Amino acid sequence: MIMKEKAREFEYTQADFDVLRKISNQYSGILVPDDKFDMFYSRLSKRVRMLGFTSFKQYCHYLKNNPDSEFTEFINAVTTNLTSFFRENHHFEYLSKTVVPGLLKKNAAHKKIKVWSAGCSTGEEPYSLAMTLKESVPADWSINILATDLDTNVLATAAAGVYPADRVTGIAEQRLKRWFQKGMGAQANKVRVKPELKELIEFKQLNLMQEWPLKGYFDFIFCRNVLIYFDRETKAMLANRYCSLLEEGSHLFIGHSESLHQLNTGFSLIGNTIYRKSTK
């Protein structure tokens, strides 16, 4: 039996897909495999419809000729932003039990902790970091969390700090009461992160493939479920750029499906997807 290709609202060809994924790769470094053909169609159809086009070829032409106005919309549509509070919880446990005690000794003179959540998506990771640090660092210490992402839409969600109530069902009741406010009335099915957490975090758009306007060292960096999208050469390049922003002995946390194995970087594996900058 021969299967008929499903009817599409807009004309969409392999050539269109190849143009779009090439543009995505050139800008973001992200590799787009062949099996994302249908995903690109479903993610971008809304833009094609909104702009009044009848084909993806028209959209490709528009994107190339109007990068200033359309490129952010394009990247926002095709990037994936799956996350949750305390995802890969062993990282946060290691942070509170091992990393923080070390930092309390190391940074005792200035009482400051500075960290980076690279690829922060809708904010669950940096807020989880903020909760962990507030619970394990003395009140008179300064905590600064830089949270960056390529996608401006998810950054807006992160900065607002408002989430559907089902997003926090896995958080312990005591922690939930301490760090979240329950919505009332029309907002009864939502929760809001308390201001004392939000004030620790600065949300910024950043393309990891471009210049990083960052100063000084971070005490540790979370870059989880980001490297998986890049080729081997780009992974090594990013890891070494992270390494340059960490002092010897500082930590890099990556995602459960990622590895720096056999890459020439300045890191040593010390735990489950936990790396430490090697000492000379």
Rank of each mutant, 00 (worst) to 15 (best):
E5A: 07
F10D: 08
A15Y: 01
K22M: 06
N25R: 06
N25K: 10
Q26N: 08
Y27S: 13
S28R: 08
D34M: 11
K36V: 15
D38W: 00
M39R: 10
S42Q: 11
S45L: 02
K46V: 06
R47M: 01
V48M: 09
V48G: 10
M50A: 11
F53P: 04
F53V: 09
S55V: 00
Y59M: 10
Y59S: 09
F71N: 15
E73L: 00
E73G: 01
F74Y: 09
I75T: 14
L82A: 02
E88K: 13
H90V: 14
H91I: 10
P101S: 15
G102F: 04
G102Q: 06
K105R: 15
K106D: 14
V115D: 06
A118W: 03
A118L: 06
G119P: 04
G123C: 04
E124M: 08
E124N: 14
E124C: 11
Y127V: 04
S128N: 09
M131P: 10
A139R: 02
W141C: 06
I143V: 12
I143F: 12
N144I: 06
L146G: 06
T148I: 15
D151V: 05
D151Y: 08
T152W: 00
T152A: 00
N153Y: 05
V154C: 02
T157H: 09
R167K: 05
T169D: 03
A172Q: 11
R175I: 01
L176M: 11
R178N: 15
N189K: 03
V193E: 03
K194H: 07
L197Y: 08
K198L: 06
Q205E: 15
Q205L: 11
L206C: 06
M209R: 04
W212T: 12
W212H: 11
P213C: 10
L214I: 15
G216M: 12
G216K: 07
F222K: 08
R224L: 02
N225C: 02
N225T: 10
V226F: 03
V226K: 07
L227G: 09
I228D: 03
F230C: 10
R232W: 08
A236N: 02
M237I: 12
N240R: 03
R241T: 13
C243Q: 03
S244A: 13
S244K: 00
L245E: 02
L246A: 08
L252Y: 02
L252P: 03
L260C: 02
L263P: 05
T265F: 04
G266T: 09
G266I: 07
I270P: 00
Y275Q: 07
K280Q: 08
